[in-house]
Design a protein around this nucleic acid. Structure first.
Lengths: 110, 110
DNA sequence: GCACTATATTACTATTTAGGCATATACTTA
DNA sequence: TAAGTATATGCCTAAATAGTAATATAGTGC
């Protein structure tokens, strides 16, 4: 398996993407948006925190290019702009499952 | 495309994995280890920071199940224990490339 | 214009954490 | 045992940031 050498700037960008995804509330927002676009109010109800807090997280996600924003009258709808985040989550899920299985094997072999 | 509903605890675990990967120095360490196992000293030289700092990051990566540790005499070797992190980095890389391309299109259509 | 609703922003606080420095631990060799 | 080397740990400080509360902005309908 061949791999390219990544520059430090590239690693910084990658690290930053992970940082954006490292907040549970933001993952909750993304997970909720997997059903389709939602208003800020919908999301506020879904993630159980204050509206200003949701708006702040939405801005972070939008700035990262993960969400797009669309305003209709008084209501602002957010939607997923970069589906790759679900691939990321799935990869992590599988890895975590594997890790737990490996731990379980310790007991099996006793 | 069907997707399962994730519990908040699951999202916390996923967020935590992203958090571990959200530090450029840790990505540098992982990227260096892609060549194969290295000693703490090797890694300290590779990532250009202090040895205690490297040890601290190595511990975080090991606790997350991403690295494994093996001591030979005086020297401690670390190696990748969870290859999925490279898949993650690659997915992010591709997404970032796509994002930049989309931005570029704005200029093309002028 | 005025009241009402939806979203965003600002200022603040509390928590987390990366990095530096000093030092501890552990292994090796003389 | 003593000196030397490799790695880990503890304490501290500075910077980043999530959350809150108050307020600002912007759109709607009367």
């Amino acid at each position: 398996m061949k791999h390219k050498k990544l520059s430090n700037e590239a690693l910084n960008l990658i690290a930053n993407r992970f940082k954006v995804l490292s907040e549970p509330i933001r993952l909750q927002i993304l997970h909720t948006l997997q059903e389709g676009e939602k208003s800020v109010n919908d999301l506020t109800i879904a993630v159980q925190t204050s509206q200003p807090n949701v708006s702040k997280h939405l801005k972070i996600l939008q700035n990262a290019g993960i969400l797009s924003r669309e305003q209709h009258g008084n209501i602002v709808y957010y939607r997923i702009a970069d589906e790759s985040i679900f691939t990321l989550c799935e990869t992590v899920c599988n890895a975590l499952e594997e890790g737990i299985k490996s731990q379980a094997e310790i007991f099996v072999t006793v």
